[in-house]
């Protein structure tokens, strides 16, 4: 079950950093390309971290950062996946799941 993926330690989840997906436009005129993610708390930090991590070799002229939770994705062709709670979540980040306080064994 998907829910088993969620980390059991709630304190850990509360201390998890926000994940941002990074898109780089390597040259003026080209489209932005997804290169990976960074952890950061605010957008300024996300931009700087993305710049430090993904453009060390001058690979960028423009950077976009988007909080992972804001990305909406289409579903793959094999649509009937039983245990996929939310079809539009891009990644299976366990921190996406909001559980009520005090819930145990999950």
């Amino acid at each position: 079950m998907q829910l088993e993926l969620i980390h059991k330690n709630k304190l850990q989840m509360n201390k998890a950093a926000t994940i941002w997906e990074v898109f780089i436009q390597s040259k003026n005129g080209l489209a932005h390309k997804h290169v990976g993610n960074v952890h950061a708390e605010d957008k300024e930090m996300a931009l700087q971290n993305a710049r430090d991590l993904y453009t060390r070799r001058n690979e960028g002229s423009c950077i976009w950062v988007v909080k992972s939770e804001h990305i909406v994705s289409s579903v793959p062709e094999d649509e009937e996946s039983f245990f996929d709670p939310s079809n539009d979540k891009v990644y299976r980040h366990p921190t996406f799941y909001n559980l009520p306080d005090g819930v145990k064994h999950i």
Partner: peptide, 11 residues
């Protein structure tokens, strides 16, 4: 304090 900061500082 974070890996990202490690990179920022060495940068």
């Amino acid at each position: 304090p974070t890996l990202e900061e490690d990179i920022a500082i060495s940068n």
